[in-house]
């Protein structure tokens, strides 16, 4: 039975860095997935996550609801991805490497190409649209949560999600053959 986020935050504030290490382990891959799709490659995603962890630590005392540490950290990650993206535009490539959980069966024969196409299509979206799409459909956030996270209003977010969906559909329509 692992400790709750609130407990780990309290221990970290008390000076226990191993508690913070546990928090990082807990959230690295979850938010890493978002960063990976937002930034298009592993290195940039790792940089964004590392950056986010350090910033979160610095301002940990201002996390008013430690039981919602995850959401609070995610907001930092979303912001870091915006900045990291602007800074590292030169290395904008995308890894279509297989995720670590490749299932034995059910993988389509052109899985590598399919992931590559998705990565390229995401790359074509404006960052705000890509961000909204990922938050809504991949991370499964409600619009109210997204508004809190991004600072944008719900109608604007809905519009971004719709535009992203339309564009992705358009870009991938001919690629997707089953």
């Amino acid at each position: 039975m692992s400790d709750s986020d609130a407990a780990l935050v309290a221990r970290t504030l008390g000076g226990d860095l191993t508690a913070y290490a546990a928090l990082m382990t807990r959230y690295r891959d979850k938010f890493g997935r978002y960063a990976f799709h937002m930034l298009g490659n592993r290195e940039d995603a790792q940089e964004a996550l590392q950056d986010s962890f350090v910033r979160a630590f610095r301002s940990l005392a201002s996390c008013r609801q430690p039981e919602r540490f995850g959401a609070w950290l995610f907001r930092i990650v979303v912001n870091r991805c915006r900045t990291v993206r602007r800074r590292l535009q030169r290395s904008r490539r995308f890894d279509a490497d297989l995720p670590d959980d490749v299932a034995a069966g059910g993988e389509r024969p052109d899985a590598f190409e399919w992931r590559d196409e998705i990565g390229q299509a995401l790359e074509q979206l404006r960052p705000h649209y890509r961000e909204a799409f990922l938050l809504r459909y991949v991370e499964g956030l409600e619009y109210a949560e997204m508004a809190e996270m991004t600072g944008a209003k719900e109608p604007a977010l809905r519009m971004r999600v719709k535009r992203a969906s339309d564009q992705l559909r358009e870009l991938l329509r001919d690629v997707h053959v089953r």
Binding site: A21, R33, A35, V54, Y137, V138, S165
Partner: peptide
């Protein structure tokens, strides 16, 4: 099409755990 895209994007992505150590 989009359902398949989202399904693909939801797959776990594992980052290098050493980034935790670098953060620390």
């Amino acid at each position: 099409v989009l359902r398949q895209v989202v399904s693909e994007l939801r797959r776990p992505v594992r980052l290098d755990p050493s980034l935790d150590r670098r953060a620390l």
